[in-house]
Simulated scan of single mutants.
Amino acid sequence: MRTPQPRSRAPRNLRSLTGLRFLALLPVFLTHAAFEGVFSDADMSWGFLDAVGDSGYAAVSFFFVLSGFVITWSHRPGDTARAFWRRRALRVFPNHLVVYVFALALMLAAGATFDTPALVSQLFLVHAWVPDPLFIDTGNTVTWSLGVDVVFYALFPVLLVLVNRIGPNRLWYWSGATVLVVIAIPAVALTLLPDTPAMPVGDASHSQYWFTYFSPLSRTVECVLGMLVARIVLTGKWIGLRVLPATALVVVAYAVAQQLPFLYRLSAVLIVPLALLTAALAVADTEGRGTPLDNKVMVRLGELSFAFYLVHQVLLEYGHILVSTKDAAGEVLLRTWGTPAGIAVILLSFAVSMVLAWLLHTWVEKPAMRRWSRRRRRATGHSSAKASAT
Rank of each mutant, 00 (worst) to 15 (best):
F63S: 08
F64E: 01
F64W: 09
F64N: 03
V65E: 10
V65P: 13
V65S: 15
L66H: 02
L66D: 00
L66N: 05
S67K: 02
S67Q: 02
G68W: 02
G68M: 07
G68C: 06
F69D: 00
V70E: 00
V70C: 04
I71Y: 04
I71D: 02
T72W: 09
T72C: 11
T72M: 15
T72Y: 11
W73L: 04
W73K: 01
W73D: 00
W73G: 02
W73P: 05
S74K: 13
H75P: 13
R76W: 07
R76K: 10
R76D: 03
P77F: 07
G78L: 06
G78E: 01
G78D: 04
D79M: 13
T80G: 10
T80A: 10
A81L: 11
A81D: 10
R82L: 13
R82H: 12
A83G: 15
F84D: 15
F84Y: 15
F84V: 10
W85K: 11
R87Y: 15
R88K: 14
A89T: 14
A89R: 10
A89L: 15
A89Y: 14
L90H: 14
L90R: 14
L90K: 15
R91Q: 15
V92F: 07
F93A: 12
P94M: 05
P94C: 07
P94L: 06
P94R: 08
N95M: 08
H96R: 14
H96D: 04
V98R: 12
V99Y: 05
V99C: 11
Y100V: 00
V101D: 02
F102E: 13
F102R: 13
A103M: 12
L104T: 03
A105M: 12
A105F: 11
L106H: 09
L106N: 06
M107L: 07
L108F: 14
L108I: 06
L108K: 11
A109I: 03
A109Y: 06
A110Y: 11
A110W: 06
G111L: 03
A112H: 06
A112P: 05
A112W: 00
A112S: 15
F114S: 02
F114M: 05
F114H: 04
T116R: 15
P117S: 06
P117T: 07
L119E: 00
V120P: 15
V120Y: 07
S121E: 01
S121V: 02
S121C: 09
Q122D: 00
L123S: 08
F124L: 13
F124M: 10
L125T: 03
L125S: 04
V126I: 10
V126F: 08
H127R: 09
A128G: 13
A128P: 14
W129H: 13
V130T: 07
V130L: 05
P131N: 09
P131W: 08
D132R: 05
D132P: 00
P133V: 02
P133E: 05
L134W: 01
L134R: 01
L134F: 00
F135A: 06
F135V: 03
T138I: 01
T138V: 02
T141E: 03
T141W: 06
T143R: 12
W144F: 09
W144K: 04
W144C: 02
W144R: 05
S145M: 09
S145Q: 09
S145P: 06
L146S: 02
L146T: 08
G147E: 03
V148N: 14
V148Q: 10
D149I: 15
V150Y: 03
V151S: 15
F152M: 08
Y153C: 07
Y153S: 04
Y153N: 07
